[in-house]
Amino acid sequence: MKPVNFDYARPKDVAGVLPLIADDSRTVKIMAGGQSLGPMLNMRLVQPDLVVDITGIEELRQVVETPDAIVMGGCITHADIEDRRVPDMTRGALPAVAGGIAYRAVRNRGTIGGSITHADPSADWISILSALGATVTLRGPGGSRSVAVEDYMLGALEADLRPGEMLVSVSVPKLSVSARWGYYKSCRKTGEFAHAIGAFLVDPERGVSRAVFGATESRPIVIADARQLLGEGTATEPGRDFDSRLAGELVEAGGMSDPIDRQTHVVALRRAIQQAGSA
């Protein structure tokens, strides 16, 4: 389990990366923390000609606070978020979820940008960031554009990157003080790939009520207005009137044909919502 030979580049800025990844005469792979790519390289599932290490780029390791969001460079690690080296404006949602990603040694190198670009359906960031309404900023030859996280993921292992484009930052909206969230993932053992994820956010001040079914083997199923799932839509006790049948129909419509998968995803979301209710 040793990788194929590849060339290696460590540009000092994003401008240095773009020409390298624009070269389609060879297979070029961007590497951030390498915690998902590393295993695939070792197993030779991925056989690049060139690996572009972006962890030397200062811009990608920075955090900027705007009036209504926290903007994290793509190379911010799970541990940076878990340890609150990145200020938390999500009422604890991001640090809590970060602390449950894989294992500490992995979190010390694994990055938020790398994780969502790798687009593993079972990974945590895709689900919780979709629930929080986060966006990513991509930069390429044609300049920058922003995309909602759930749209950035096109499907299993496929992100919406145009030729020559890379992710530079993730922007997470600041939650109101009355906001509540819940996150439930079903794993057979600690740190394992999730088999079902439920994520939920209610932020009445901002008029947001979002629910996400994650770990679907594909992109997450996002319910942008989750009030329909919650009976009258009151946020006082959101778990109580959860409409399991409707939730089941939603995941089925989202392409989930297996009844047990549907059941576990519905229960995961219900538990996430209950968690928010009891928080």
């Binding site: 030979n5 590849f6 060339d7 290696y8 580049a9 460590r10 540009p11 000092k12 240095g16 951030a32 923390g33 390498g34 962890t55 030397g56 200062e58 990608l60 390791r61 920075q62 955090v63 460079g73 190379c75 911010i76 690690t77 541990a79 940076d80 340890d83 080296r85 990145v86 010390n108 190198r109 694994g110 990055t111």
Partner: peptide, 26 residues
């Protein structure tokens, strides 16, 4: 010691190199 004393952001081991680099495989 919170966070094991780490203050720097980004992947462990990164950000120490002073210069950009290119290297060829064997």
């Amino acid at each position: 010691v919170a966070g094991g004393g780490r203050t720097r952001l980004g992947p462990a081991g990164s950000g120490n190199a002073s210069t950009a680099k290119e290297a060829a495989g064997a």
